[in-house]
């Protein structure tokens, strides 16, 4: 079983005025001009390269960081590179107000944990804060204090996370 509590530094995905950005689509996360790239390791440097003000995110992000995003994050195309680019950067968890339906599945199926937390942008959480997140309960702690309750991950999502992605999960099912 993989860790149920993750600790990391937060990136609040906001615009120049500090407001949350909703409906960030997969072209903003990973632009179509890079779709020819098939090596996941190469994808990190293009994460958010078409999102105004976030072009330098790949240089600033560190492995273990946690992304906090607005409503309908990952709207648009089904392209998985928009998830893979964050995995390449070592992002450990994505917390969001809500996600595009296909994007959410792609995150879960890739084995990257995801917490839905409607209202998280009103919790006082700031970029640079270090938080601990309990995946089973959805609870988010800062300095040991509970600051927000997101939705717990579903059991199927936790199983896929434990297995390390949809393929390993499928193999476990076959052998069960």
């Amino acid at each position: 079983m993989k860790p149920r509590i993750l600790k990391g530094r937060v990136w609040m995905v906001t615009d120049g005025n500090g407001n949350r950005i909703d409906n960030i689509d997969t072209d903003m996360i990973f632009h179509n001009k890079y779709l020819y790239i098939t090596d996941i390791k190469e994808m990190g440097k293009y994460a958010f390269s078409n999102l105004e003000g976030w072009e330098d995110f790949p240089q600033k992000a560190k492995p273990g960081d946690i992304l906090v995003v607005g409503r309908n994050f990952g709207a648009g195309s089904s392209r998985q590179q928009a998830v893979d680019c964050f995995i390449a950067l070592g992002i450990s968890l994505i917390i969001g107000e809500s996600f595009g339906a296909i994007y959410k599945r792609n995150v879960i199926n890739s084995g990257l944990p995801l917490i839905e937390a409607p209202g998280i942008f009103e919790s006082g959480l700031k970029t640079g804060d270090v938080i601990e997140v309990n995946l089973e309960t959805g609870e988010i702690f800062r300095n040991g204090k509970l600051i927000f309750r997101g939705k717990p991950m579903s059991s199927v999502a936790l199983d896929i996370y434990d297995a390390g992605g949809i393929f390993e999960y499928g193999k476990r099912l076959e052998n069960a």
Partner: peptide, 11 residues
Amino acid sequence: AAGIGRSEVAA
């Protein structure tokens, strides 16, 4: 009918 990701199609 719904869209899914490419890993899921492979699965």
